[in-house]
Amino acid sequence: MSLDFQDVRRIAKLARVAVSEQDTHMYQHRINGVLALVAQMQAIDTQGVAPMAHALDVVQSLREDVVTETDLHKKFQAIAPQVAGDLYLVPQVIEHDD
């Protein structure tokens, strides 16, 4: 598997990252290098080996259902670019047409 120029542009767009045309070629080359490494690993026979969901062989610890957080919105909003009526304000949301 390898990515073409358009694939890389699409990934950049999905990630909302602005990438120049020149850099797109560079990323295409690098990503394909990673994919080549993955292809090499795929040659290994994994028949009967359960897929791994996490690198650590431990399981999720669970938290009791208790509310311990307090209202810190004043502190959080002190560093927000724009705030009104306790709401975070963002540029008006318009359904993006991509």
Partner: peptide, 14 residues
């Protein structure tokens, strides 16, 4: 997302 209260912006309540 709360639209309309503040012109040109969207209010976010998390």
């Amino acid at each position: 997302s709360l639209h309309g209260d503040y012109p040109g912006t969207t209010g976010i309540d998390l």
